[in-house]
Amino acid sequence: MITFENIDVVYPNGFKGLSNVNLQIDKGEFVAIVGLSGAGKSTLIRTVNGLVPFTSGTLKVGDEVVDPRSKAKLRRLRSRVGMIFQSFNLVTRVSVLNNVLVGRSAETPTWRSLLGWYRAEDKELAFKSLERVGIVDKAYMRASSLSGGQQQRVAIARVLAQDPEVILADEPVASLDPPTAHKVMRDLRRIQQELGITTIVNMHHLDLARSYADRIIGMRAGEVVFDGPVEEATDAVIEEVYQRSLTAEDIVAGDAAAESSAAGDAAARDSATEGAVTERSVPAAKAQD
């Protein structure tokens, strides 16, 4: 269970990332966070594992109170909270297996890490994680030789190797084409259901959020403006969150891979540019304040 109590995040440059966020996310829930670029989705997700330190309030993951100032505590927390990213963030020059084994870092003595001499049970866990996402055959290939969807699944395997209680996913499918996006979302959903891992996903695409999540949290300007089950997140509600009417950009093309590939490509390009815009507009938003 994750509890946010009056969480504020003020960045060093004075930009207010989150203001007075109160949330309670139960164990095993699949939560999608929606909102426009710069609404604070990434900030919210990153406060959970301390990548962005919150400046006031109380944050609890399980029974443990998150303390952004203690490095040792943060490392311990991060070993229980896995995270996947929009740009996969794999080390592309090393093998898939070594990327997954990075997930074992917190449990591995430093000297073993430095020599790359992982324990047999850690390797076994890494292989099991790769099997769970269906790419164990790529274990010894360089990560750079994999396609985007495969790389994201390696990232999921890395998170699974941590044996986490919580998975955070920051726009996990924003740089993938629609069929792959659905595939990765299905993987996440299946893992959440099989292993009972609490999963929090930032989303750009409303239809993906609706079809895979249990619960949707809407954010605007650093505040939670909607929080409810998927059924309640009607178009009208989301338009209220976005403060604009919904457009074709808010949905990803359908699941069926057989659908006209041209349309799919276009949507993929759209989502890719959209993702790029997100990345760039966040500092821009900060600068404005």
């Binding site: 594992n49 990548l51 490392r75 311990r76 927390l77 991060r78 070993s79 909270v81 896995g82 995270m83 996947i84 990213f85 740009s87 996969f88 963030n89 794999l90 080390v91 592309t92 020059r93 090393v94 070594n98 990075v102 997930g103 870092s105 917190a106 591995t108 430093t110 890490s113 430095l114 790359g116 990232a155 890395r158 998170v159 941590q162 955070l168």
Partner: peptide, 25 residues
């Protein structure tokens, strides 16, 4: 910085981060 962030997020300490996220790059 991406691999650094992901490595940090999986609980690596500084030396592990250097070994597996910086050195390969």
């Amino acid at each position: 910085g991406g691999p650094l962030e992901s490595s940090r997020a999986s609980g690596s300490n500084h030396l592990q981060l250097i070994r597996w996220a910086v050195l390969p790059q």
